[in-house]
Amino acid sequence: MPLPAYIKKDYKRTRTLHGNWYLMNYKYKFNLSRTKVFLKGLKEGHILGLKCRSCNTVSFPPRLICGRCLVMPDQWVRLPETGTIATGSASYDTNDKNRERPLPVIAVRQDGADTVWLHNMPKDIDFHSIYIGMPVKAVWAKERTGSWFDIDHYDAIEDPAIELNKKEQEK
């Protein structure tokens, strides 16, 4: 087999030395005013969105600033536990031996919210059966600690428009 053209005659002229650098230390500063109320709400079993008074956009999870109006949204609203799938994929975790059943990852648009955010569906759900527009419902964790994963996962609920959605997909 002929060598690729880029392999020069003096191939051995470069020398490789290895360097290691396990040094990583940063300080990031975040404003906690948005997450405090939100996480407290989750702990108590409420799903809270943050509404901009100027344009009525509801962000879930909350945003510190509304980019459309450049104002700080400050109106907390209760959202229902249901939502729809905006997009999805499947995650093959390298640590997981069972590659047959990857973890379905979904971006959920909570009903009443205008933004989407990532969550999971249970592993026994076939990721091929996930479609965009699929209705889902939040399932609470047994012990709530005031974090995003107080919502353990999202479960599929009955889709009244299933026939329509299937038709959409097949078209």
Partner: peptide, 18 residues
């Protein structure tokens, strides 16, 4: 664009369709 999926402050994407 807005960073898809992550959005601003990691507070979700306003761009619902990536």
């Amino acid at each position: 664009n807005e960073s898809a999926i992550l959005g601003i402050d990691c507070a979700g994407a306003g761009q619902v369709d990536p």
